[in-house]
Design a protein around this nucleic acid. Structure first.
Lengths: 294, 294
DNA sequence: GCACCTCTCTGACTAAAGTCAGAGAATGTC
DNA sequence: GACATTCTCTGACTTTAGTCAGAGAGGTGC
């Protein structure tokens, strides 16, 4: 990480927050306090739980409560108790709120246009492409991979999605409870470890390691949410899992997978894993890989 | 300007202001209101005139006055009257202020590092490169080209720099008052027009048009500040001047220039101008161009 | 010397943003 | 059924941010 990189990022921050940040605040905030505009924006067309809002905007509960009250008084949102759990409140846009959001959208478009108009066509293309890169890489950088209990709701959610995806893509019905080889206690310290990848506090991937004293560690249940693919996240998660296996004392790691998971196959092949003969009888597996950990 | 471009910019704004913007506010602002931090930052190591600060941060004079008072009370800055004009006040950082600025710098570096660390080396390189592109293109986009009176101080500044540069780069001494062909009244409506390019309210380029009823318009005094080169600004300024010539009724435009201005030569050649025999006797000129306006 | 600038400061405001402690309802846990 | 927990709301605050009108000191041009 060179000084020149750091310097470049600082220049970027300066230019972008000055130009985009300040402008977008002005654009969005006109005629409505910025806080309210942000809330309105974040609620979105489909409504949203209040606690979600609080988490996403990281606002004080009292403050948010007041903001919502003010929006309700202006007739832009309506609040109601959530049906299953009546402590939770759900906020929805009224028709007027949707109109307001549309004008916010228009302003946001106008801002975007104001950035593009002074540029020539090739410059515009380069700007948009560069913005796409920055946005994707910052998104990638903001993913956090955290050790999580395999029975934590987020872990369960990921596992369920993983199974659903396998079944969707494969003819064989995969039932994780039949011949289960990654039971909670097997991927929980000290036997192993389970990781969940979070993007803005939402689970978007998982993976597990099973330690085996004096034998290769196993990497299991690696999954990335479709919405988070193409960010290079798989590579990062895999590196994390390998590091975990190594830290657990393994010198070699094993992975088995199904040929229907084509992204996984190419990921393994491009990161130093070599295909080996079957080393177990996982019913859904048809490819087996091995890697020597450095 | 496609919808996809607009959409991409909106996504960018969202991601970047959420990630970089909010973070950098938090990073910079800790233990000190953001307003004060920004002022401290903008004063810089070498001190600065108060009116400069006001212009650059576009703050109300009363508000800035109070911010400076508060910084002075914390012992971070000292104020003194400027020596030539005692109305103007100059702010300087004290030793404590410089320390404080260093910690701001460190935080800014830490922020930059926090963006890079989760990424792989190739990703880092791409992020930095994309940030450089975005920063440069946004800078370009934020340049405003405004019609300005040729005797306005900003216009005079640009002209003086233009002359100085010609003399620096050429053996011939160029004296704009000898055989002057772009006198103020010639490049002021209705006879012509003078343009100044502003970047953050500072003049970074100029150019003039002289209309000639029923004859080719002349483009004159085109100059871009060295600090603003490489932004594609010359091309934009030239387009503006051509548009002005066209709006003034010309169907053809003329430019003469000196071979020492190599960037200008290649700009003209790459934007549809064709070299023609000398059409005037400008003492410093050795290349003459013509372009049919669409 | 006079009128007219320019730059800065002060006082008197308002609005927005954010914090904190605690109350109250609904729910899950044993 | 008691108890802890979760989620939301209220009241009482503080701090930032920003605006506006006007005063006063210092300059410039004639």
């Amino acid at each position: 990480m060179s000084d020149a990189s750091i310097e470049q990022i600082r220049r970027f921050n300066r230019t972008v927050t000055a130009r985009v940040g300040a402008l977008s605040d002005r654009f969005l905030g006109r005629a409505r306090p910025l806080g309210e505009a942000r809330v309105l924006w974040e609620i979105g067309r489909d409504g949203c739980e209040v606690r979600m809002l609080r988490a996403r905007l990281s606002l004080d509960s009292g403050y948010l409560s007041r903001l919502l009250r003010s929006l309700e008084a202006s007739g832009l949102v309506s609040l109601e108790a959530s049906t299953p759990d009546r402590r939770i409140r759900v906020v929805r846009l009224t028709d007027a709120g949707r109109d307001e959001l549309s004008t916010l959208d228009e302003r946001s478009d106008a801002l975007a246009r104001s950035l593009l108009t002074p540029l020539s066509e090739p410059q515009r293309e380069r700007l948009v492409a560069a913005m796409r890169d920055v946005e994707r890489l910052l998104t990638t950088a903001s993913v956090e991979i955290r050790p999580t209990d395999p029975e934590h709701p987020d872990a369960r959610y990921c596992l369920a999605e993983y199974v659903a995806e396998l079944n969707r893509r494969s003819d064989l019905a995969f039932d994780p409870s039949v011949g289960a080889t990654a039971l909670p206690h097997e991927v929980r310290p000290p036997a192993g470890e389970f990781f969940v990848a979070y993007l803005r506090e939402e689970p978007v991937g998982c993976g597990a390691v099973k330690h085996h004293e004096g034998a290769p560690a196993e990497i299991k249940r690696m999954w990335i949410a479709p919405s988070a693919r193409g960010l290079g996240l798989g590579r990062r998660l895999l590196a994390e899992l390998e590091a975990c296996a190594l830290a657990g004392g393994a010198r070699v790691a094993h992975i088995e997978t199904s040929g229907v998971l084509t992204e996984a196959l190419s990921l393994y092949r491009s990161t130093g894993w070599v295909e080996v003969p079957a080393f177990n009888h996982e019913p859904f597996a048809d490819h087996w890989f091995e890697k020597a950990l450095p």
